[in-house]
């Protein structure tokens, strides 16, 4: 895969809007060079006021001069982000992590996102659709009020299924209750129990995006190293995307 070097630049917030009670979408504008070449599954790191460590956030979409991220308010960092207004500047590290390998998609790729694991699936779906693939998307949420992005995937021409744990919307249960009969390869991002269940439910290999508390986010501190069948790997630099067969799930 052709990975670009990380870049540290200033972005300006164009929009920052809630999609559900806890999930927000931020649209940032920066230098074209800081956006160009970002791959689906890569992430960025934001420097936030009052916090020491940068906050890693997956990329939902990136084109021209725009960077779109969708984040859930879970702690101080993401709460600070939700309070930010259009026009504010943010120091952002881009081109972090490896991203998904699109060359392995086959003819019928399956994309699975759980909760705030949904956003990185968007850019992946967009690029796979541009390659003319038949893309199946399964999105898992807890309940109807937490559902977001469903229409965005439909607009790309994907086959979309939604599951909710309480059955208030779509198929009742987990993403594994709505998997298509056939898929050539899969790509997923979401909570670890979902990734485990998915890897068990699908007979072929796929790629999973892992999440860990990070120090630097670019491979220097060894703060996020996991044990894989190929030895220790840094989630931030060697990942966050790993083949399911490489992980000790």
């Amino acid at each position: 895969m052709d990975l670009q070097k990380m870049k540290q630049t200033q972005f300006t917030i164009l929009r920052n809007e809630p999609l559900t009670a806890e999930v927000w979408r931020m649209t940032l504008e920066g230098d074209a060079a800081a956006v160009s070449g970002i791959r689906p599954g890569q992430f960025v790191e934001l420097q936030l006021p009052g916090l020491f460590l940068r906050r890693p956030i997956s990329v939902c979409d990136a084109y021209d001069r725009l960077l779109i991220i969708i984040y859930k308010v879970v702690g101080k960092g993401t709460a600070a982000m939700a309070a930010m207004q259009a026009g504010m500047q943010l120091d952002v590290l881009t081109h972090l992590g490896n991203g998904y390998d699109l060359s392995l998609a086959g003819d019928h790729p399956l994309l699975v996102g759980g909760g705030v694991g949904v956003p990185p699936m968007y850019m992946l779906a967009k690029q796979l659709r541009e390659q003319g693939k038949d893309v199946n998307v399964v999105l898992g949420f807890n309940t109807q009020s937490e559902v977001f992005s469903e229409e965005d995937f439909r607009a790309l021409g994907c086959e979309v299924s939604v599951t909710t744990v309480d059955g208030s919307y779509g198929t009742k249960g987990f993403v594994t209750n709505a998997l298509p009969a056939y898929s050539s390869y899969y790509y997923a991002c979401g909570p670890l129990p979902m990734l485990r269940a998915l890897a068990k439910a699908v007979s072929h290999d796929g790629e999973l995006s892992m999440e860990e508390r990070m120090g630097c986010g670019f491979g220097a501190c060894m703060g996020c190293s996991i044990q894989t069948v190929n030895g220790p790997k840094r989630v931030c630099k060697d990942g966050p995307v790993f083949k399911a067969s490489e992980l000790k799930l």
Binding site: G50, F52, M222, S225
Partner: peptide, 13 residues
């Protein structure tokens, strides 16, 4: 390999 995760904690600014 080192210690179990998490290995990192934020300490404000």
């Amino acid at each position: 390999y080192g210690n179990a995760l998490p290995r990192i904690a934020e300490c404000g600014g």
